[in-house]
Design a protein around this nucleic acid. Structure first.
Length: 562
RNA sequence: UACCCCGUGGUGUAAUGGUAACACUACUGAUUUUGGUUCAGUCAUUCAAGGUUCGAGUCCUUGCGGGGUAGCCA
């Protein structure tokens, strides 16, 4: 009998906290929620939170709700609600139940009256500016509001009249009565309600007072019987307040746990940053394939699996780290390598003519769809004497380590024959317009009787059979690592990459014609591509998802080719 | 200069007081009809200084460094 060694899987600090609470009996189950404010589109940073919350529910056999934190009507729209739900589903998650903080407005109101009656909240007549003055600063304590000692009766009366609409916007607020000298500024009598006449995307004009985040979040969690309320680090200082409200109210008390949000190199994810890119036309919309939004990645061709893998890959901790973009791209390549059928297309063509090829003859070659997955079979590609190859795959004079085609050299045409180049034709500017080769009939792919070995293999397409298609080559939007923090007098717009999108016409093997929108393929030796929704029957548009790793390009850039 | 949080290779994450692990990057090399993939190898004594301990990345103290917080935003 072999003993299985005790296998300890490593857990992140959130899971460790959960384990401890489950063990101690503080909670019996794991109930989480993902609580976006519907004021914009979800981005890659949200993906981390989504994967965390839904993932925890799954691993602990618990539940995860979707709750829209819609307490600020001036910023929120139904359009965003719909987009958010679509993105979460696309990522591959299903919520156990759907809620809106606005569903709890009446509960919240009743609880507010309760705190007023217990003397823990009061109506304050200070204006916003006055309140700021009274609050003190980071180093000085605040002063009590002149209205702080109003009686519960008077407060109740005023609060009811606030709700009834008797006072103008901003003229009064309801505040928790805590401690104006607290070193935690969130304890300096935080606002619970503001008077705000704005139409809410769900409750319309029913309310003219709206609860703030602090007064809403914990109680919403409580009502949904959430056990672990997971949020990002900037809410750390709010946790004491979260706890204070639950305790004062004597209600089910979830545990708030904070983690570091995802920060990726060379992109900006802030709402106003992204909004400006869209509004000023630097990108085509929220789903522009260069955008870090989930809808952008979807259109770009990223798979939900690869984003999920990426999120679990980067882990969860409290350290503010920056993840290199290549991690995400790597995760995409890793998945696509396994699932994407291979095809050939030439993006920057030059003619290659096989002068010993029988005039007018066409041969059908067979090529595997994906060497990683023999299950998905083979495809047929027409081969002829008039080919197109990549201009970059030919050099008249080439360094020693250039394994592609050179004058006087030979190369294998993938899934075809070995050809020998004996001459080139140039135009008056000296630019090569045609490469003249002979082929070796003994070297047919899969039936090579020659025993010949060549160093390089290149892709090609038969000129008369090739299908023209539009290819959009995407690169990163910004040229710097951290577009968010820029030097004096510059904004992130000064670091926009002028080459973030280039469009070229490609010549592709005929089988590419039979793909559908959303299909992902690998163009051999180039990269992974997805059929864009802009595609028409006869005019296909491909988006480059991510290029293949390019060891040669790297060597060349470093001058290591000799 | 108040309070809170954080400091482990180039980048991240782990090590639950017992002798630094995993992934990515980078660099070597092998295989390869994609310079792709795959495979093998190389790259840290844990911010610093004290202390507790038989033993400290883990606990304590101080310092240094980074982040957050002064919306009637979330």
């Amino acid at each position: 009998m072999s003993e299985t060694p005790p296998k300890r899987e490593s857990k992140n600090f959130v899971e460790q906290s959960i384990d401890a609470d489950l063990q101690s009996g503080r909670f019996q189950s794991v109930n989480t929620r993902f609580p976006p404010e519907p004021n914009g589109y979800l981005h890659i940073g949200h993906a981390k939170s989504i994967c965390l919350n839904f993932g925890l529910a799954k691993t602990y056999n618990g539940t995860c709700n979707l709750r829209f934190d819609d307490t600020n009507p001036v910023k929120e729209e139904t359009e965003y609600v719909d987009a958010i739900m679509k993105d979460i589903k696309w990522l591959g998650f299903e919520w156990d139940s759907l809620h809106y903080a606005s569903d709890y407005f009446e509960d919240l109101y009743q609880w507010a009256e309760q705190l007023i009656q217990s003397g823990d909240a009061y109506v304050c007549d200070l204006s916003a500016e006055e309140m700021r003055e009274y609050r003190g600063s980071l180093t000085e304590s605040g002063r009590n509001s002149p209205d702080r000692d109003r009686s519960p009766e008077e407060n109740l009366d005023l609060f009811r009249r606030m709700r009834a609409g008797e006072f103008p916007d901003g003229s009064r607020s309801l505040r928790a009565k805590i401690d104006m000298a607290s070193p935690n500024i969130n304890f300096r009598d935080p606002v619970m309600y503001r008077i705000l006449r704005a139409s809410h995307h769900r409750t319309g004009d029913t309310w003219c007072i709206y609860p703030t985040y602090d007064w809403t979040h914990g109680q919403s969690d409580s009502l949904e019987n959430i056990s672990f309320s997971i949020c990002t680090l900037e809410f750390e200082n709010h946790r004491p307040l979260y706890d204070w409200f639950c305790q004062k109210l004597g209600i089910h008390h979830p545990r708030q746990i904070e983690f570091a949000k995802l920060k990726l190199s060379s992109l900006v994810v802030g709402k106003r940053f992204m909004l400006r890119l869209v509004k000023e036309g630097h990108v085509s919309g929220w789903d522009d394939p260069r955008m870090p939004t989930l809808s952008g990645y979807r259109r770009r061709g990223y798979t939900p699996e690869s984003i999920r893998n990426f999120c679990s890959d980067v882990g969860v901790a409290k350290f503010n780290s920056t993840i290199d973009m290549v991690r995400l791209e790597n995760s995409v390549r890793e998945h696509l390598n396994k699932i994407a059928p291979r095809r050939m297309a030439v993006l920057d063509p030059v003619k290659l003519t096989i002068t010993n090829w029988p005039e007018g003859q066409v041969e059908i070659m067979e090529a595997v769809n994906n060497p990683e997955d023999p299950e998905i079979g083979k495809r047929e590609i027409p081969f002829s004497g008039n080919l197109l190859i990549e201009r970059g795959d030919f050099r008249e004079e080439a360094p020693r380590k250039f394994f592609r085609l050179k004058k006087g050299g030979a190369v294998r045409l993938r899934a075809g024959y070995i050809v020998d180049c004996y001459d080139v034709i140039k135009d008056e500017d000296g630019k090569v317009t045609e490469i003249l080769c002979t082929y070796d009939p003994e070297t047919r792919s899969g039936a090579d009787k020659s025993g010949r070995k060549v160093k390089g293999t290149i892709h090609w397409v038969s000129a008369n059979h090739a299908k023209e298609m539009t290819v959009r080559l995407y690169d990163r939007l910004f040229t710097v690592e951290d577009p968010g923090s820029t030097e004096e007098g510059k904004t992130y717009l000064d670091y926009l990459n002028p080459n973030s999108l280039t469009t070229v016409t490609a010549y592709a093997e005929p089988s590419l014609q039979s793909h559908e929108i959303g299909d992902r393929i690998q163009l051999e030796r180039i990269g992974y591509f997805v059929l864009d929704p802009d595609s028409q029957a006869e005019s296909i548009v491909l988006n480059r998802i991510v290029p293949l790793r390019d060891t040669w390009g790297k060597m060349e850039a470093k001058g290591k080719t000799v």
